[in-house]
Amino acid sequence: PRPQDAFNPPVDNSNTPFRPKLGHWVRREAAVHPLEAALNDLKYEDKQLEAPEPQLPQGLDETPLTYVDTLDGLKSLAQALSAVREVAVDLEAHSFRSFQGFCCLMQVSTRTADYLVDVIALRSHIGPHLAPMFADTKIVKVLHGSDSDIVWLQRDFGIYVASLFDTGQAARVLAYPSAGLAYLLSHFCSVKADKRWQLADWRVRPLSAEALHYARLDTHYLLYIYDCLKVLPDHLQEEVPERGPATCMGVVLERSRLLCLQRYEKELFSETSYLDAYRRCQEPLTREQLAVFAGLYAWRDRTARERDESTGFVLSRALLVKLAKRAPSNARDLRAVLGKWVPL
């Protein structure tokens, strides 16, 4: 069985606009970002702007690691996080066997402890228990390359983020050779990340010791990297932030604030959606072939929504074009085009 088959409430793949999970928010209008007003009026505390001496993290062996997969464990985590001033967060997600994708694991690190949260097992409880911490403007949330994480948190848990510091944005402002986390881990911590796990199937339970180790590394050193990146030069090159101090730190904080204002939007199908896909495929089609392409594109979208699979799993773009060009008229010819491996 697939994890999403047990989700309660079930995933809504209907061809209608996304309705966020706002049951734990005072403002519950579907089209409203609950933190929009707070983010537009965000003020930074002096401590958030200071650049103290970077605080070296404890070694992995000396740092407690807690795997959270029970409600009591989640409540304990929420209580612990409410008492910190900064927290590092990352997410591992899966998209190939799901129409919209879903989060599988949340990594959380404080200055003294690491946590790995099974957000598949605790999916319906994550928002009510962790949303207050993510929304607290006095707690800095440190994420790396958070563009996707911000909207994934909204999509799956109704969590919205304030007081974000994106270390990827800081690396870009400083014009480092790379803005990737692997580079920052190597540069500041002499740690080499194993890139093989970037394509891992994070739905698998139980997760292997190697997978847990890789996931832990994503946040264990992130607060130290955050400390190092806060020692930003005071001058600006070209960009002037709309809010906050007119410094490189201000640029990073403003970019991070704008990331928090993103809203998750479900992909919607229309009668002309196939045209965007056709332009991307860069394959010339006749008018008749394009009509076949449009019909197949609509079938693929409908099937993916109904079965909660990605459109690429249902039918790859390459096969979509191939079928449109050949337009097989019987089962034998269809099998010849599709080849040996056909998921559906």
Rank of each mutant, 00 (worst) to 15 (best):
R255E: 08
L258W: 01
L258T: 01
L258D: 14
L258G: 01
L258M: 10
L259S: 14
L259R: 12
L261M: 13
L261E: 12
L261A: 15
Q262H: 12
Q262V: 14
Q262M: 12
Q262L: 10
Q262N: 13
Q262E: 11
R263P: 02
R263Y: 06
R263T: 13
R263K: 11
R263W: 11
Y264C: 06
E265C: 12
E265N: 14
K266C: 06
K266G: 03
K266M: 00
E267V: 14
E267S: 09
E267R: 15
E267M: 14
L268S: 05
L268P: 03
L268N: 02
L268C: 02
L268Y: 15
S270Q: 11
S270M: 01
S270P: 10
E271K: 15
T272I: 14
T272M: 07
S273V: 07
S273L: 01
S273P: 00
Y274G: 04
L275F: 03
L275T: 12
D276C: 14
D276S: 13
D276A: 15
A277R: 10
A277K: 03
A277T: 08
A277Y: 05
A277F: 03
Y278L: 15
Y278H: 12
Y278V: 10
Y278P: 06
R279M: 13
R279F: 12
R279C: 12
R279S: 09
R280V: 03
R280Q: 12
R280P: 05
C281V: 14
C281T: 05
C281E: 13
C281Q: 08
C281F: 01
C281A: 15
Q282E: 13
Q282R: 14
E283G: 01
E283R: 09
P284N: 00
P284T: 04
P284A: 07
P284F: 03
P284L: 02
P284Q: 01
L285W: 02
L285D: 05
L285Q: 05
T286G: 02
T286I: 10
R287C: 07
R287M: 13
R287G: 00
R287F: 15
R287P: 01
E288K: 15
E288A: 15
E288I: 13
E288N: 11
E288Y: 15
Q289W: 08
L290A: 07
L290K: 10
L290W: 09
A291F: 12
A291N: 09
A291R: 13
V292A: 07
V292I: 13
F293P: 06
F293E: 04
A294G: 05
A294K: 03
G295H: 11
G295N: 14
G295M: 08
G295K: 08
L296N: 04
L296E: 01
L296S: 09
L296F: 14
Y297L: 04
Y297V: 06
Y297I: 05
A298C: 10
A298E: 06
W299T: 05
W299H: 11
W299G: 08
R300Y: 00
D301R: 11
D301I: 00
D301H: 01
D301F: 04
D301V: 02
D301S: 03
R302I: 04
R302V: 06
R302L: 06
R302T: 13
R302P: 04
T303R: 03
T303L: 08
T303P: 00
A304T: 07
A304F: 05
R305A: 02
E306S: 09
R307K: 00
R307M: 04
R307E: 01
R307A: 01
R307C: 00
